[in-house]
């Protein structure tokens, strides 16, 4: 198990290989279907994004409500493939770490290699486990989307497996 800080450093990122088990601490953004569609729409209209993506990590997730005394409810990964049509454009803006579950399209695999970014798989269905890793949460944009809003999280000891590395290596 490798312990890594987010946002990830260039050297750490390049050293990751498919099947490596990792544990992340630091900052990551949360966005899924509607957030992806909106971000790409903003890019296509030449408008600024509500967050700077360069060097950042994004987690495909939509949480359940927090129980009293918790900062976040259940929060495991959602299926990454639904984000595939939008992902190459976001990688083009410098996104470096994608976190979700399941396979990616050829276009995403190619873009990961070209932009030197990684795709990491979180443990699907393990939302309670991930709830324990969330230190703080902040809504950054698109609050109207409810459980699908764009969030910024601080995490500690967030476990995952490298699925596609920046050299083209893949578990799939």
């Amino acid at each position: 198990m490798r312990t890594l800080h987010l946002p990830i450093g260039e050297e750490d990122l390049r050293s990751l290989r498919a099947f490596d088990t990792v544990s992340f601490s630091g900052t990551l953004y949360v966005g899924r279907d509607q957030v992806h569609q909106r971000l790409v729409r903003l890019l296509e209209e030449g408008k600024p994004l509500p967050v700077e993506l360069a060097g950042q990590a994004i987690y495909y997730m939509g949480p359940s409500p927090p129980l009293p005394g918790m900062v976040m409810g259940s929060c495991g990964p959602t299926t990454s493939a639904r984000m595939d049509p939008f992902t190459p454009q976001l990688l083009g803006k410098g996104l470096k770490v994608l976190i979700g579950k399941g396979p990616r399209s050829q276009a995403v695999q190619d873009a990961l290699k070209k932009e030197k970014a990684v795709y990491v798989q979180a443990f699907g269905g393990c939302g309670a486990l991930y709830a324990k890793t969330i230190v703080s949460v902040e809504t950054v944009a698109f609050e109207d989307l409810g459980p699908e809003a764009l969030l910024r999280l601080e995490v500690r000891d967030f476990p995952a497996i490298v699925a596609i590395d920046s050299h083209g290596g893949s578990v799939f």
């Binding site: 129980l67 259940s74 309670a128 324990k132």
Partner: peptide, 8 residues
């Protein structure tokens, strides 16, 4: 901890 096992 009575957290739903999955967010979905």
């Amino acid at each position: 901890e009575w957290i739903p096992m999955c967010q979905d």
